[in-house]
């Protein structure tokens, strides 16, 4: 038996075997091990944060990551952005009939490694099987629970004109890496996805009183977060193209595909807004972390009517930045 069968989702002996032999040993931890109907956590001090995300990725494996790694990073990072310390994740697997068990194991292995990297255990889970339907092989939902330290309030309402905008590293790597495995594009790149859990990177910033806001620029790219900022604060944002930490390879790959790197997805970056007084400290702490080596101050919040996100281009001209309309589609021509 090397493939997932409908019976693996039936709740009988096969289900138990699948879990006990293939899934659980890879995820073992004290909270999960009792395999109760629910995970039991001690009541934390502070407020509780809850977030959920579903993962549908094709192909399942790509340079720098896979659906398992994304499923941990996405949810951990959503908690991280609010300043919450993640306590645990639930894991719901929806498997397609016919999926190679070996593929499942690879995904779970990666998921387990990423959970360990983040220091966040999988504390409860569920597995179902759906009929073969040219689906995605594996769909994953993770829900994350976290605790928000007393007094921490990271909401756009606290942003002021004059605050600085930090990007924690080179943008667009995830989206470009995914495109390189898209069928029919004939695009190869040395780039790998940046998918990474960011709780460790963000943790040393939480004590800074000037920290106002963090968001991970996933599908809408950095441009999407800047557009959010403008909408949610009614203020303007001015970004300096020359300050963007763009690596030559990202620049060229984007240029080649006709994409604006600000519009391309990331899975391991944060856009941070911080008061000027704390910006140097924040930058130093970010750069001391392996995931923040290329962190840079890329711009500033401005008072302005009408509220706009603008880019000062490399040659000193101005243009506006908008949320991309749809998924960035390449144009090789």
């Amino acid at each position: 038996m090397s493939q997932v069968l409908m019976a693996h989702g039936g709740g009988g002996e096969l289900t138990r075997q699948l879990l006990v032999e293939r899934v659980l040993p890879r995820l073992a931890n004290p909270l999960l091990n009792p395999l109760l109907d629910s995970a039991i956590l001690e009541r934390p001090s502070g407020r509780v944060c809850l977030t959920t995300d579903s993962f549908v990725v094709q192909p399942l494996f790509f340079p720098g990551g896979d659906i398992g790694r994304l499923a941990v990073c996405g949810t951990v990072n959503d908690l991280t952005c609010l300043g919450a310390r993640p306590l645990g994740l639930s894991l719901a697997l929806i498997l397609e009939e016919g999926l190679e068990l070996e593929t499942l194991e690879r995904v779970i292995d990666s998921l387990a490694r990423t959970a360990e990297e983040a220091g966040v255990p999988i504390i409860t889970g569920d597995t179902k099987v759906i009929e073969r339907q040219r689906g995605d092989g594996i769909l994953i939902n993770t829900t994350g629970i976290g605790v928000l330290p007393e007094g921490l309030d990271l909401r756009p309402a606290r942003i002021n004109a004059g605050d600085l905008v930090i990007l924690t590293g080179v943008p667009a790597e995830h989206g470009l890496a995914i495109l390189s495995v898209r069928e029919g594009l004939g695009f190869e790149t040395a780039l790998a996805s940046d998918a990474a859990p960011l709780n460790g990177l963000a943790a040393p910033l939480l004590a800074l009183p000037g920290l106002r806001f963090m968001r991970d620029p996933t599908r809408g790219g950095v441009a999407g977060v800047l557009a959010d900022l403008v909408e949610e604060t009614g203020l303007s944002v001015e970004i300096e193209e020359r300050a963007l930490p763009l690596s030559p390879i990202v620049r060229h790959a984007s240029e080649m595909l006709g994409l604006d790197p600000l519009n391309v997805a990331n899975e391991g970056k944060l856009v941070i807004v911080i008061a000027p007084a704390d910006a140097s400290t924040a930058l130093a702490r970010l750069r001391a972390h392996p995931l923040g080596r290329h962190a840079a101050i890329i711009g500033q919040i401005k008072p302005s009517t009408p509220p706009l996100a603008e880019l000062i281009t490399a040659i000193g001209g101005r243009r506006i930045i908008q949320r991309p309309m749809a998924e960035a589609t390449p144009r090789i021509c």
Binding site: A243, L244, P248, P276, L283, A295, Q300
Partner: peptide
């Protein structure tokens, strides 16, 4: 097309 630029120092 330079290498990664040095960050702007906080204003």
């Amino acid at each position: 097309y330079d290498e990664i630029p040095p960050a702007l120092e906080p204003k």
